[in-house]
């Protein structure tokens, strides 16, 4: 017998097949990461011994933080972490200030030709960084910089192997400007006028009126700046040579020199991943919103 009338409202995605698919996918995405963290706690011999059984994904057997201790012996991991935290934090802070300031002027103030400027800024979005990276290496090697030498300032040439070469190219970002611009346009202009009645200048309006109301935009830009800064590999690979300036991602090269200890590799990769995962879990909504925001790029 066939049912002639639909029984209530059809709700796809709630049946057993959908649940099975959801759970299978969750396993596919979570198990490799679980394997990484679990293996980081085991001695090499046990990692290989467990591969053939479900124990590979379980924290069982001889667990210790020995691999983590060994990582700090093999790699200046603390230094690398510090470098990455510093470079990402400065890039994010400068990025938020520089891009929001530009977006504020383009959104709010009377500046001739701002429509053209905004169009030009957005045009730079079509260029993937990878196409510019190689000419950019040559270019930063020609740029001058002022270095403090004792009490006198000295003019040096070439940014290779510095901190600024890891930060400055990634501060200004067309997409961040675009996001701030969109957000500022949604804040009522009456607020500016009220502030101006009270004698506030434009910079005060930016700092005291508009920016405090732009938390979500700041979070989005901060996340979209932070992730590539923390994860950057191609760029520091080419422009950083000295050990004391290296970011975390370059640390992986240390593990394949003599004898490879996979337990240590997994400990190092866990170490540089867990801070980001913790941030993600804490600010989940903001992360997801920022990725969704990048969906308006086209």
């Amino acid at each position: 017998m066939t049912v002639l009338k639909p029984q209530g409202v059809l709700r796809p995605g709630t049946g057993p097949v959908a649940w099975l698919a959801r759970i299978a996918l969750a396993a596919v995405f979570a198990f490799p990461l679980l394997f990484m963290v679990v293996s980081s706690l085991k001695p090499d011999q046990q990692i290989f011994g467990d591969l053939g059984s479900p124990a590979a994904f379980l924290p069982v057997g001889h667990l210790s933080l020995d691999n983590y201790a060994a990582v700090f012996d093999r790699v200046p991991a603390a230094r690398f972490l510090l470098n990455s935290v510093g470079v990402s934090a400065v890039t994010v802070a400068l990025g938020v200030v520089v891009n929001s300031m530009a977006a504020f002027a383009l959104s709010r103030m009377r500046v001739r030709g701002k429509g053209i400027i905004l169009t030009l800024v957005i045009a730079t979005l079509i260029v993937p960084f990878e196409t510019l990276a190689l000419p950019l290496v040559w270019w930063v090697n020609q740029l001058p910089w002022l270095t403090a030498n004792g009490f006198s300032l000295e003019l040096t040439t070439g940014w290779l192997d510095t901190y600024q070469v890891q930060v400055l190219p990634f501060v200004a970002n067309a997409f961040s400007i675009y996001l701030f611009h969109q957000y500022f346009d949604s804040i009522p202009k009456e607020l500016d006028e009220a502030a101006r009645m009270d004698g506030a200048g434009w910079f005060t309006i930016y700092r005291r009126v508009v920016m405090p109301l732009s938390g979500p935009a700041v979070a989005t830009v901060a996340i979209l700046t932070f992730l590539p800064a923390w994860n950057s590999y191609l760029w520091p690979l080419m422009v950083v040579q000295s050990e004391e300036l290296r970011p975390v991602m370059l640390g992986v090269q240390y593990f394949f020199q003599l004898n490879v200890s996979w337990g240590e590799v997994m400990a190092y990769t866990s170490l540089i991943t867990l801070p980001v995962v913790a941030l993600f879990i804490a600010f989940q909504r903001a992360f997801v919103n920022s990725i969704a925001a990048s969906g308006v790029k086209g």
Partner: peptide, 18 residues
């Protein structure tokens, strides 16, 4: 003032993209 606020971003975009 508007130009001054645009300048840092514009300068960096020119220097590192254009």
């Amino acid at each position: 003032l508007g130009w001054a606020m645009i300048a840092p971003a514009a300068l960096l975009l020119v220097l590192f993209i254009v």
